[in-house]
């Protein structure tokens, strides 16, 4: 494909940033136009995510802790869950769905013809700003829990937090790209985003709850551990070097696989007109 493989020549970065900025602005203006989205997207999304807490509350009702995590540690975890789930609902899911709709209708050609990387074009195809309410709530919860637990993270620990959180976000985006690439092959696979959304429910739980193969899956394949458990653990200094290394390797590997899958998918794409 024309734009996919092209390198970062002079001014390319600015062009990409300008595109993302413009898409953000348009989406924000559209969101302000349809203010009912505050309720249908923002509040309902938050209620969905908090509803997923009920099983944890039930578990804490019958036990003092969930696999070593006390109530306030669970709140801290929930804060990071809301950040991840909010980013998914506001940026990843809308962009992937919009791109899928473009594959279906054949208008993806216009996106690919832009003088920017095709993937950047697709991943910034749509934003849902109201879902950022979830991210904000998540940040507040994480701060409140940190204060309640009387944690005083050092600068180094905050650095680790930023690193694992970045790894979590990269993994989340990579999974989105994999879903998008799969939908090139078979349009009926578009409900994969729904599968991802339901799976995300399990990011509510600390990774120490899971056993055996499921633990491996949620650490390395669909790395919910990197997205929610590790950031929470990094604040209390409970995160070992091997886990941080594992997070970085997982994120990089997922990103590389996603990029490869995307290139393969594009090569097989023959557009609506040709």
């Amino acid at each position: 494909m024309s734009s996919a493989g092209q390198g970062f020549e002079h001014g390319a970065l600015r062009r990409h940033l300008a595109l993302v900025g413009a898409q953000l602005r348009v989406s924000t203006l559209a969101a302000l136009e349809y203010r009912v989205g505050f309720w249908t997207e923002g509040v309902v999304g938050l209620a969905w995510s908090l509803g997923g807490l009920v099983p944890l509350i039930v578990a804490l009702e019958h036990r003092d802790d969930v696999a070593g995590w006390g109530p306030w540690e669970i709140v801290l975890l929930t804060g990071f869950f809301l950040i991840i789930s909010g980013v998914f609902a506001s940026a990843v899911q809308p962009a992937v769905s919009e791109s899928m709709a473009k594959i279906r209708t054949g208008t993806l050609d216009y996106l690919l013809l832009r003088p920017v990387d095709g993937l950047v074009s697709c991943l910034s195809a749509a934003f849902e700003p109201w879902s950022l309410i979830e991210v904000l709530t998540g940040v507040v919860l994480a701060v409140v829990a940190t204060i309640q637990l009387e944690l005083t993270p050092s600068a180094g620990q905050l650095g680790v937090l930023a690193l694992v959180l970045a790894c979590g976000l990269v993994s989340l985006y990579a999974l989105g790209v994999l879903i998008l690439s799969a939908s090139f092959r078979a349009l009926e696979l578009q409900n994969l985003t729904f599968l991802m959304e339901t799976l995300l429910d399990f990011a509510h739980w600390p990774i120490s709850v899971f056993r055996g193969p499921l633990k491996l899956v949620f650490t390395f394949v669909v790395p919910f551990a990197v997205m929610t458990s590790y950031p929470a653990q990094s604040l209390s200094g409970a995160l070992g070097a091997s886990e941080v290394l594992g997070a970085v390797v997982t994120a990089l590997a997922l990103a590389a696989i996603a990029r490869l899958a995307w290139r393969r998918a594009l090569r097989g794409y023959t557009s609506a007109s040709s």
Binding site: R63, V66, A67, F202, V209, F210, G212
Partner: peptide
């Protein structure tokens, strides 16, 4: 997408 109860199974079994 409806195998969620089976993941719940593993989870509650561990708890």
């Amino acid at each position: 997408a409806t195998t969620l109860p089976l993941i719940s199974l593993v989870l509650w079994r561990a708890l």
